[in-house]
């Protein structure tokens, strides 16, 4: 599991507390609670599962078992840019794996992992239901159709350009503040 960032522990305690307050400690609410925590924090840190288990008075292994059983739950923090590669039948047939390998080559991480700077995360999904434009890659919320290694190069270049622009802006803002 990845290291918590500075101040992340306090954030987890606060958010999970809020969400637990909203729902009862009824076992039926466990999945909705976990979903909401993931929505709010982006993933399920180990600490959050421990807090939830304690509040619901169930062994933490029950919570952990649940989060590893269901594909939706993420135990690694998501990257700033989330890349999901569709591995549905139609996508697989026309090169979903090729798209996945291209991203893996670029980012030097495997499926289900996040880069150490937390900029990119890579996942596969079963089927996003856009089979007509396979192979499909979901980048953040946008769906990219007919993805080839060349398109992957293009997407990565666009990300890098965006990052640079942002960095530049930040630097400029800092400069202004400095003045």
């Amino acid at each position: 599991m990845q290291q918590l960032l500075e101040g992340e522990k306090e954030l987890i305690i606060e958010k999970v507390g809020e969400i637990l307050g909203k729902h009862g400690s009824d076992r039926e609410n466990l999945i909705p609670i976990l979903q909401e925590v993931q929505d709010s924090l982006g993933y399920l840190p180990g600490l959050s599962m421990e807090i939830i288990a304690e509040a619901m008075d169930i062994p933490s292994v029950d919570v952990f078992g649940l989060t590893t059983f269901y594909n939706q739950f993420r135990l690694n923090p998501p990257g700033k840019h989330q890349i999901k590669i569709c591995m549905g039948t139609a996508c697989y047939m026309v090169g979903g794996r090729i798209a996945l390998e291209s991203f893996e080559r670029h980012l030097k991480i495997g499926e289900g992992e996040t880069t150490s700077d937390r900029k990119y995360s890579l996942e596969t999904v079963a089927c996003v239901g856009c089979c007509a434009i396979a192979p499909v890659v979901v980048v953040n919320e946008d769906i990219e159709g007919k993805v080839t290694p060349t398109r992957v190069d293009g997407l990565m270049l666009a990300f890098e350009a965006d990052e640079q622009e942002e960095e530049q802006k930040e630097a400029e803002e800092n400069e202004e503040k400095g003045d």
């Binding site: 591995m87 549905g88 039948t89 139609a90 697989y92 079963a126 089927c127 239901g129 089979c131």
Partner: peptide, 9 residues
């Protein structure tokens, strides 16, 4: 859940 099926969606 079937990959390649999306009629319910």
């Amino acid at each position: 859940g079937d990959p390649g099926a999306f009629m319910d969606r």
